[in-house]
């Protein structure tokens, strides 16, 4: 059943976010630390285990795939709710600090990516995977 996939996703989400809140409390910050990350790791481990044991039916996988294919539309909805007006009218200090912080990040990315084993680029997208 489709709902089984959605349930697996929801359980992982809940446990992950709870762990993130607990970790946030332990280190003494008010916010969630890595909740989404823990949920993702849990989902990777559990879904692989269930797939190997043949416990995740095609329909259950569809339940998971539905939400991951809703990711981009949800992100587009999120961008519609950003405070772009405030950002543009924020004044030069905020705008410069924001832009330069991103540029510095990009400049550092190739340096840090060099650490450890090199990674292979992903294969090019086939046009069929466009949407």
């Amino acid at each position: 059943m489709v709902i089984y996939g959605v349930t697996l996703l929801s359980v992982c989400y809940f446990i992950g976010v709870l762990l993130g809140d607990i970790l946030g409390q332990l280190v003494g910050v008010g916010s969630n630390v890595g909740g989404v990350g823990f949920a993702m790791i849990l989902l990777i481990i559990l879904s692989n285990k269930f797939l190997n044991d043949n416990h995740l039916s095609k329909q259950a996988q569809d339940g998971l795939n539905f939400w991951s294919s809703m990711y981009i539309p949800i992100v587009v909805a999120m961008t519609c709710g950003q405070n772009v007006y405030a950002a543009i009218t924020a004044g030069p200090l905020a705008i410069l600090a924001g832009i330069i912080a991103v540029l510095v990040g990009f400049l550092l990315m190739p340096l840090i990516s060099k650490i450890g084993k090199p990674a292979e680029p992903l294969p090019p997208l086939t046009p069929a995977k466009e949407d």
Binding site: L9, V36, M40, I41, I44, S47, W67, Y71, A77
Partner: peptide
């Protein structure tokens, strides 16, 4: 605001881990 709010956003982000490689 609901569709792009943090709950559905994080939920969809977690779902993309299905198929990611550990």
């Amino acid at each position: 605001g609901t569709m792009g709010g943090s709950m559905l956003r994080d939920y969809a982000i977690v779902s993309t881990a299905f198929g990611a490689r550990f």
